[in-house]
Structures are given as C-alpha cells and as structure tokens.
Design a protein around this nucleic acid. Structure first.
Length: 826
DNA sequence: TACATACAC
DNA sequence: CATGGTGTATGTA
C-alpha cells in the first residue's frame, strides 16, 4: 500500500498549520457502518470440509520479513490494491528515529510543546497554533482508493471543509475538540510532575504486568483469523448489478454507509453525509440499503466459517473471527507432517531486547548472530542447535503455509457462494489478525509473521480499540505514534491512564489479546454474553414544541417496545438520550421500580425523564432499555410467587412473575380514581396518548426484603410510585394523589382528559414539585417559543444529579432556539 | 447509580 | 439546506 504509506507519513510528519479549521474524524477505514450486530445464530452443526481439500494454487505469494500476502487471482484483483507497507519491513532508518524518540533520556522529563496552561485558559486560537491539523479532518481516510485519486487529498480536505465550516455540527466538533485538548493538557502537566524514581517504578510495574500478560496470552501456534467482506454493502449491490462496479457508487441514506472503490477515489467515505459526498463526486450513484440481501450473504458466509471453526465469532454482518488452530493442525497431520510444538518457540517479551532493537535487530527471523540470543538462548552444541533450528523453521513455514491456504480457500469459497470478495488477516492473536485484515484489502490477505517488525512502525490508530481521541491523546500528549513507542513509553501510560487502560494499551502495543479490558471484537474465549441493552433513536428536523417532541418520543417507544416484545425483554433501567439542535448530547437515566416492556410503560418513564429537560430544541431522541429481567430458564416447578418472594425478596418475585397479562393485582388500579384505559395490545401511535397505570406498577414494597405478603397487608403499606420511584408510606388515597401529580407532570394531555378546559393552566404545577419550566403551559398551548431564554452557557459547572423524585429543571446547555416547523422525517 | 465519553461497525 | 443508528465498555463522582 504505497499510497497508504504515503498518506500516513503525511499525517505523521505534517505538523504545519496550513488549515484554519479542524474537524474530527469519525471513521477512517470502516467499510460499513449501520450494521447492527444482528444476532449471530451460531449453530453447532459442525459439518467439516476436508482439510485435504486445500487449494494449493495460490497465485501470488509475497514474503518478506516473515509476513506473507496472498492474492486470490490477479484477474479478480482490483487495481487499487498495491504493495504492502514496506516501511515496516525496512527497519534501519525508521527504527533509528523510533529509538531516539523513545529512549529514556528523551521520554523523561517530558518536554511540552506549548506553555503550561490550565484547562480553563484554553482557547481555540491558542490550541490552533499547536495543533496537528491533519488528524482532524473527517473522511480523509488513507485507505486504498486514494492512490489513484482523481481528487488529491488536499482537494478533498478543501471541499469537505468548505461544506462543513459553518455548520452547527462543525461547531460542536470544535467544542469537543477543546475538551480533548484540555485532557491532553492535563496529561502533559501530569507528566511534568513525574519524578524519575516514580517513572522507574511505574516501568517496573508495567514490565511485571507485561510479563504476566505474555505468559497468559502469548501464543505462537494459535491460528487467529479475521475475515472481512470488502465494501460489503456495495459489493452485494454490484454483484446483482455489475454495471455499478464501473461507476462511483454508494449505499446509504442521508449518510454514506459504504462507498465502492470507484467512489473512494473521489474521497467519498463511510459516514460521510451525502451532501458532502455529492460535492466531492457529483455523479455519485446512491442506493438505499437492502439489509435483507446483506443478511442473506452474511448467513452464507457464516455457513462457510462454521466448516472451519464451529465456534467462530461474528463481529458484525461482514466480519468474523475464526480460530483455525485445530483445523490447521489437522490439515498438517493429514499431509503426514508434524505440527510444530509450542515448546519449540517459547513466548518471549516482544520488545524486551531494547538494545538489540536499537542496534538494528529486527526480530525472530534474524536468528543468527548475537541478536538471536535474546529470543531463545542457544546453548551447548551449536551445530546441533542449528540443525534443530532449521527443522523447526521448516515445520513452522509449512504450518503457516497451510494456514494461509486454508484462509485463501475460505475466501475463495465466500466469493464463489456469495459473489463478494473478502479480505483476511492471519496472526497468532486476534488483535494482530484484525490489524492484518486491513493490510491488504480488497480481496487480499496478510499474515503477520514477525510480530515485532509488524508492530514497530504500526501507527497506534491501527489497533482496534484505539480511536481518534485516544490517538490524539497519545500523539499530542505522550508523543507516541507507533506501537513500539507505545511500549517504550509504558511507564507514562501507567502514569496518565488508569491501570486497567494502561495494561490494555501495553498489551496491544505488543500484539497481545486480553489485558484486562474486554474487547468487543475479540471477546474472551468466544464467550457470548447476552445483550445488555436495547435502544432506538431517531434524528429529525429540529423540534421545540412539546407536543412534537412527545410525538417523537411515542414513536420511539412504540418501536422499542416492539423490538423488546420480539425478544421477550423486560427492562428495569431506562435511558433517555437527547441531542439538541446544536449537537450537544445529554442522557438521563432512571431505574424503574418494576420491569417495563410495553410502549405505554416506556413512554411514561421516558416522559418522566424528558419533561424536566424542557424546553429544548432537539434533533434527536433515543430511548435505551437495560437491566433486563432474567429470562425464565428452566423455571423451578411449583415455586409460586409467594415462595419466591419470601425466599429471595422482591426482585426474585418480580422475576418469577408470569408474563404480563395474567392476574397480578396487588394494589387496585381502579383506586386511582379514574377508569383504567386501554387494554394491552394497542399501538401507541394510533391514538392520542393515553395514561395507563398498570396494576403491576403499583405493587407494595414492604418495609424490608424480608417482608412477606402477609405482613404487608397488615402493616401500613409502603408503595413505590411507578413514575418517580418515591416510596410512600401513605394511605391509598394519598398514593393516588401522588401518582396523579406525577402523571400530571408527565402527560400534557392528562389535564385535558381529566379536567375541564378552564382549570388547566394554573393547575399544572401544583404538586409540590418544582416546575419544569415556567413556559410549560405556553408550550402546551402551541405558543411559538422564545429562544433566548435558555442559553445556559455555564460550561464546566458540574450538573447536579437529578434525584428521580424531584428533578431539577435543567435545560440543556447550548440551547439555540429554532422555530423551524419543517415537516418531520420520522 | 447516573452520566459522559470513547469505540466499532 | 444538510453530518446516522445500535451496542458495548470505561471513568468518575
């Protein structure tokens, strides 16, 4: 990837402040977005392709420094593909630079590029002058497709900038950038205070942890493979309509999901808004997504993966993690050979021989001479050792050769069955395989042979899990750009990051999975944890009017409830997400007293979270449900509600209850003073909002966990208000009043339904709770909104937590009023 | 627990 | 004119 290499150097070396804007990069090299991780219905049927059926006809093999690259066939190969990063293979000059930058004497004490500033004194201009601008452009990915560029990188930058610079989005990005900049300043001042003794002890700690991680995770024989479908969405479309292949083409809606390689030549990228894409490439052809088709293809590929690793993990529709160790071992044995044993290559700290590195030592392949001793002591009979060594290397080569042919076969089969090409990475850990899968796409594969040389010059950003922000912190804060530098500055990591994060970074720097943080991509041992949450969110043209916002909320809740019903989920925790028209994001969460699942329940609780935030002008709302009710797996027979309640307390009783709908009266709903409305099924969006207080919501929660039903009925009951979670030790009539007041605040239509018109307004906020906002009444009356009243500019002032029972009126920050009444998009 | 952030895709 | 949606995890108070 000569082109890629050039761009990376561009990024790394070009500190010039030639641009007067910075822009955050969202996603540099993902091919696809918008792919939710649909349930991987991994079957356990392990039909197995014969290992001996390996394709032995790889067309292209390029081997250097232990890395091997395969190409399916040159005819199938896209033109954009080119050489791999050669700088990683050419240590001398690059290595020198690296060493000098990271030698202890340089890394401590830290020199700081800009004068010490407290975070509060930062301003855009000052930050601007010290900025590595190029990191912050959006959509300027350095992937293949740019090397035959019809548009130069500079041109793309200019166009993107032009289209972005006056947008609210852009301003929001700048705000976020400032925050990150403050973080970096904090990091730097922390580093300034790092004493040499402390640095040494941190380094020792880092080395201890790394040694432990090496021992626990380093493998030399595990065949980890990451398979990734190329430009997935567009590839599927192109398969069905080959003419699309020849023209710049993308799949997406308002935002590009995937651009084909033609379009990428123009700078069109995933996550790029369509209007910018059109500026870059006016003739761009855009289609909307056809998820069913992609899903079908994904399932076809998964059937193939299962043949090689029944425990494979699907990272997404277009990505899978396979452990081919067993398969490859079997294949090697089938060839009448003997796979190398683990003992033949004991794990060794990767960068440990620093002195060897600085003197040009490049790793295992250089097993002759003095450097080799660092990787495996050669003792005793030298000649015998050499013979043994050679035999090992032969078996080694054979082993990985088989692995590469297996992966090639997998890719060939994928292409044959689905018509879509795939790229793959092969390595001894998944994080390395993941990095490698990007080395040689499209339609190529890459094996990490010599880990040290692969990582030495690898930009930290290539590590899955190190994103834009972390990269910036590492580069600007620690002057760390490559994985090797990450390792070399490990003491600093332990100083500025939490031990957990530092450990994780350190592990990645040497290509180790694990390290404490759970990697969503890799996952420990292929364990699949059930889903933790489910959410729906929607962007729309900015809205201010209360009834408009509530309408959106209802639609979202309807949709979420449908999804939850489909999966049989009931949740106890709800999070409301708001994005104001200026792109500031706020979340508000609450625990519900009881599990909720219906649209009505979701709506009531979400409303309770939303109302204290009003007035706001929003462009997005979302609701997330989490803390699910445990699924009734093998429900214990004969154990009724009561026993469960007594045995394990209220929670267990909740869990044991039959699904909604059956008898569950605890407190009479009719006692609320008005007729119960609406049965179970009705969709919320079909009628006006209705208040429904499920009988379930009003169950008494006794004075303690040990309380039984019997005692509850005898004592003064303690109720939990279903909306505000307040525990009330009151008579039922008093409870009813309380609930009414909660409802009054959470449902603007309540009064219309319950009271004569006249009495509405003055009565809205009487229940002893702080009014959400003085304007509520006006809002409900469809008055047009003043906008200048809420500009609460206090940055940095910590928000007080909102006690669920008495939410403060807390308008969103950066409220920019808007009276836009455009038709909504939902 | 609640909230803000970061990340992947 | 105009910048997405779903899910996971961590840091912090």
């Amino acid at each position: 990837m000569a082109g890629q290499n050039a761009s990376m150097e561009d990024i790394v070396e070009n500190d010039a402040d030639e641009e007067d804007f910075f822009f955050t990069q969202t996603q540099e090299d993902g091919d696809e977005v918008w792919e939710s991780d649909l349930e991987d219905a991994r079957g356990r049927n392990t039909s197995s392709a014969s290992p001996s059926a390996l394709g032995a006809n790889s067309d292209t093999v390029i081997e250097r420094s232990g890395h091997t690259k395969y190409c399916l066939s040159s005819a199938e190969k896209k033109a954009v593909h080119s050489e791999q990063n050669t700088s990683a293979l050419r240590p001398p000059d690059g290595a020198d630079a690296v060493i000098s930058r990271t030698s202890p004497s340089h890394s401590f004490p830290r020199s700081i590029s800009s004068p010490q500033k407290t975070a509060s004194t930062c301003n855009v201009a000052a930050l601007d002058s010290t900025r590595h601008r190029r990191h912050f452009y959006t959509f300027l990915g350095d992937k293949a497709g740019m090397d035959e560029k019809k548009r130069s990188r500079e041109e793309v930058e200019r166009i993107v900038h032009e289209a972005s610079k006056n947008s609210k989005f852009f301003l929001a990005q700048q705000r976020n950038d400032l925050k990150v900049q403050e973080r970096i300043q904090v990091m730097q001042s922390k580093l300034n205070m790092l004493s040499e003794p402390l640095r040494r002890s941190l380094e020792a700690e880092a080395d201890r942890e790394l040694a432990a991680a090496e021992k626990a995770y380093r493998t030399w024989r595990q065949v980890c493979v990451v398979v990734d479908l190329d430009a997935f969405f567009t590839s599927v479309e192109e398969r069905d309509e080959p003419a699309l292949r020849e023209v710049p083409f993308a799949v997406g809606g308002g935002v590009i999901s995937t651009a084909n390689y033609e379009a990428r030549k123009y700078g069109v990228r995933s996550a790029m808004p369509l209007f910018i894409a059109r500026k870059l490439c006016p003739q761009l052809l855009v289609r909307s997504t056809r998820f069913e088709a992609y899903q079908t293809v994904a399932e076809q590929t998964r059937a193939i993966f299962r043949d090689y690793d029944p425990r494979y993990r699907a990272g997404s529709l277009d990505e899978a993690y396979l452990d081919l160790t067993a398969y490859v071992h079997a294949a090697v044995c089938d060839q009448g050979e003997e796979p190398p044993t683990p003992e033949e290559k004991p794990g060794t700290p990767l960068f440990a021989p620093v002195t060897a590195l600085s003197s040009g030592f490049t790793g295992v392949e250089d097993s002759e001479g003095e450097g080799g001793a660092a990787w495996g002591a050669m003792g005793g009979d030298e000649e015998e050792e050499e013979v043994r060594e050679r035999a090992i290397q032969e078996r080694e080569a054979s082993y990985w050769g088989v692995a590469e042919r297996v992966v090639e076969e997998i890719r060939r089969r994928i292409h044959g069955v689905t018509g879509v090409t795939a790229s793959a990475g092969i390595a001894t850990s998944f994080c390395l395989a993941k990095m490698a899968s990007n080395e040689n796409k499209p339609n190529g594969q890459f094996r990490v042979g010599d880990v040290a040389s692969f990582l030495r010059d690898a930009p930290v950003r290539k590590v899955s899990g190190i994103g834009r922000i972390t990269e910036r912190c590492l580069v600007a804060g620690l002057d760390v750009q490559t994985c090797f530098q990450l390792w070399a500055n490990r003491a600093l990591l332990y100083h500025v990051y939490t031990p957990q994060t530092a450990r994780w970074l350190l592990c990645k720097s040497v290509g180790l999975d694990g390290g404490g943080l759970v990697d969503p991509e890799e996952g420990p041992g292929g364990q699949r944890t059930g889903r933790k949450g489910i959410s729906r969110e929607r962007t729309f043209a900015a809205l201010s009017r209360k009834e408009d916002l509530l309408e959106k909320l209802r639609l979202i809740c309807d949709s979420l409830a449908a999804d939850m019903a489909r999966e049989g989920l009931k949740a106890k925790n709800l999070t409301l997400k708001l994005k104001s028209s200026d792109f500031a994001v706020t979340t508000r969460a609450k625990n519900c007293a009881f599990y909720v699942s219906t649209s009505q329940e979701l709506y009531q609780h979400a409303l309770f979270l939303l109302l204290p935030q009003l007035p706001v002008t929003l462009r997005l709302m979302g609701v997330r449900a989490s803390h699910f009710q445990p699924k009734p797996q093998a429900p214990p027979k004969g154990q009724g509600c009561l026993e469960a309640y007594v045995a394990t307390g209220h929670e267990a009783a909740m869990a044991e209850r039959p699904p909604s709908g059956s008898a569950k009266k605890v407190a009479s709903p009719s006692s609320l003073g008005r007729p119960p409305r609406l049965g179970e099924g009705g969709s919320f969006s079909t009628g006006p909002p209705l208040i429904v207080v499920d009988a379930d919501l009003l169950s008494p929660a006794g004075g303690g966990k040990e309380a039984t039903r019997a005692t509850v009925t005898k004592q003064v009951p303690v109720y939990t208000c279903p909306l505000c979670n307040q525990r009330l030790s009151v008579a039922l009539s008093e409870l009813n009043r309380h609930v009414d007041s909660c409802l009054r605040e959470s449902d603007p239509y309540f009064l219309e339904k319950e009271m004569p018109e006249e009495s509405k307004k003055g009565d809205v906020h009487r229940a002893g709770r702080k009014p959400c906002d003085a304007e509520d009444g006006a809002t409900a009356n469809k008055k047009s909104r003043r906008s200048e009243n809420v500009n609460c500019s206090s940055r940095g002032g910590k928000k007080k937590k909102l006690p669920p029972a008495r939410p403060d009126a807390k308008p969103l920050e950066h409220f920019f009023g808007s009276n836009s009444r455009r038709p909504t998009t939902m």
